[in-house]
Simulated scan of single mutants.
Amino acid sequence: MPEGHSVHRLARQFGDVFAGQRLAVSSPQGRFADGAALLDARTLLSTVAHGKHMFLHFDNGLALHVHLGLYGAWDFGGDATFRGASSIGAPRKVGEREVFDDGATDPGAGGGPEYTGPPAPVGAVRVRLAGAHGWADLRGATTCHAITEAEADAVLARLGPDPLRNLPGDKEGFVSGVRARKTPLAALLMDQKVIAGVGNVYRAELLFRQGLDPWLPGRSLGADAAGGLWEDTVAMMSDGVRDGRIITTPPRYWTEPGAGLPAPGESHFVYRRHGLDCRICGSPVALTDLGARKLYWCPVCQQGS
């Protein structure tokens, strides 16, 4: 499932390529036909991401609410001026990239015949948004609804603070929310009512970087440690928005630190490294299941509270 940084990248991209435009909204698959009719020919005013939820706000007081879930993905394409990533979401595609390279040819933009509009939809396209220079197709999302602003506010009210929004009071709300629970930290970080946008990769890497025992009850975590956990989450996820990837290791752990971003196998401390030596202490990285998700951690380095 795409984590919060990908959803924020999506919201930023929609704002960059479609904000202020009157969009053609359709549902080639047919499952979103009623919602598409409500949004068709309306102007996109703004885009908001909160955790793993995205809201596209239109000029008629309605919003397109999307949660990608495990299988949702947006595909983009357009003319030579369209600067949209080819695809963001899951399942991942061979050759997918979330950072546009001005020196490369984008699969959906430029280098071809004159742009005459979106191509015929391929597969089960739940919703298509089309503007003056490009389009975006949504497939496989868990949530895709046209809702009122009040309904959007109600969704936000059910979610915890988003580190990538980091609004006033969010840090304090996270600290108090964590310290009020006896649930293990590893479960709390995946609870979207406690903190919005953290997924399995960030969960494992945050706990490792903070040296925290995944099974430590939230109420046993000191206020300073909880505040430090929030601040590291803000920093790590902000890096993810910038890089288009989750990278949690510093350059000293990379084979070619001056070459840009690290190889995938050098990007993380513990995630998907079970059985391999911990990068810090050399002990084997452990793996277990917690809440039906895989948890990676170092039993030696992560004993702190």
Rank of each mutant, 00 (worst) to 15 (best):
Q210A: 10
A225I: 00
L70N: 09
E114S: 12
E96M: 13
L295E: 11
T116F: 05
T105F: 08
A292R: 13
T255E: 06
R179N: 07
P28R: 13
G160M: 01
V127Y: 07
G134I: 06
R245P: 00
W230E: 08
G123C: 05
D16G: 02
A85D: 10
T142R: 15
K294I: 03
L159T: 12
Y115I: 01
L70K: 10
V7P: 00
I280K: 13
F82T: 07
A186N: 06
G72N: 08
G265Y: 07
G69Y: 11
S176R: 14
M236V: 09
F82D: 04
A186K: 08
D239Q: 11
V25Y: 01
R272N: 13
R203S: 07
T47R: 02
A150R: 15
V175K: 07
H65N: 09
S26G: 06
H57S: 11
R83W: 10
A90N: 15
H57M: 01
I147H: 04
V127N: 06
Q303G: 14
A186F: 01
P163H: 02
R209Y: 04
M1R: 03
T105L: 14
V94M: 14
L64Y: 01
L185C: 04
L56P: 00
S220C: 14
A37S: 13
K294G: 11
P250D: 12
D16Y: 00
R128N: 09
P91F: 08
A146D: 09
A36T: 05
K193F: 02
P250A: 12
V17W: 02
P161E: 05
A24R: 14
A41I: 01
A226V: 12
F100K: 09
V300Q: 10
V25F: 02
H145P: 00
